[in-house]
Simulated assay, not measured.
Amino acid sequence: MVEFFLALALFLLSHSIPARPEIRGRLTGAFGERTYVILYSLLSLGLLAWLISAATRSPYVPVWNLAIGQYYVPVILMLPTFMLFAGGAVSPNPFSISFSRRPYDPARPGIVAVTRHPILGGFALWAFAHVVPNGDLVSLIMFGGFGLFALAAMPLTDRRKRRQLGADWERLAAGTSILPFAGDAPWRWPRGTLAATLIGGAGLYLLLLWLHPWLFGPDPRIVFS
């Protein structure tokens, strides 16, 4: 399991160290924002591929017995997971990960009204959903570690963004919450983001549902047979 733990440690470090503002600032200053994002994405995908490959080569140590009903957990939970991913990517969000360049309007927060950290929340939901149908030690460590890492990143990101936004934090973050559906922000969406969230999330869900056996091995469609 040495290779697995090494790959896991490097994957987590690659997402922890560049998150520090001073380090990210130096990297984006050296490469430019666009080039940095591309290089960082390629590095993350490469480390993830290595981690999954190392996990498949690790000894199988059973933790609990498996049953077909356990496959229903990720099949059900991955749809809202992809909604969080898609919504988080297209919605303006000054508090967390977002690929939108549009300014954030607290009167139309979109998916930020659900949670300030939709992509991190989706990552945690993905991880914990995959713990259930994988009853071995390596999967428990890998997926459980991903989930805990995503949950821990939320308050840390809040603290960093609060410092960056200063006096604007209270105004912009009013009504939002880390916990899903715990805030009272208005349920209004920026133009086009609701449709992109629903269509994009559903499309990603169906695509990965059919590609999963070729990409990762297990076939989640078995629950429909």
Rank of each mutant, 00 (worst) to 15 (best):
219 D>V: 01
127 A>F: 02
30 A>P: 07
168 D>W: 00
6 L>C: 08
79 L>T: 06
102 R>L: 12
17 I>H: 04
142 M>W: 06
69 G>L: 05
53 S>A: 08
18 P>K: 07
18 P>C: 04
13 L>M: 15
10 L>E: 10
60 Y>R: 15
109 P>E: 10
10 L>I: 14
58 S>R: 00
174 A>W: 12
110 G>L: 01
46 G>Q: 05
82 F>P: 04
219 D>M: 03
145 G>M: 09
74 P>R: 01
114 V>G: 02
38 I>Q: 02
198 L>D: 08
87 G>P: 00
8 L>T: 03
135 G>L: 11
67 A>V: 11
1 M>T: 14
29 G>Y: 05
173 A>I: 01
129 A>C: 09
26 R>K: 09
67 A>S: 15
112 V>Q: 03
52 I>T: 05
74 P>L: 02
217 G>T: 06
57 R>L: 14
150 A>V: 00
13 L>N: 15
10 L>G: 07
152 A>Q: 11
95 F>N: 05
178 I>V: 13
124 A>N: 04
8 L>S: 03
154 M>N: 02
202 A>T: 14
136 D>L: 07
108 R>M: 12
113 A>N: 11
176 T>S: 10
146 F>D: 03
180 P>Y: 04
216 F>C: 02
55 A>M: 15
59 P>D: 04
71 Y>D: 12
154 M>C: 07
183 G>P: 02
5 F>V: 09
1 M>V: 13
162 R>T: 02
222 I>N: 10
106 P>G: 07
82 F>C: 05
153 A>M: 15
41 S>C: 10
192 G>C: 09
218 P>N: 14
70 Q>V: 03
199 I>A: 13
146 F>H: 05
89 A>G: 06
160 R>V: 04
110 G>R: 01
199 I>H: 12
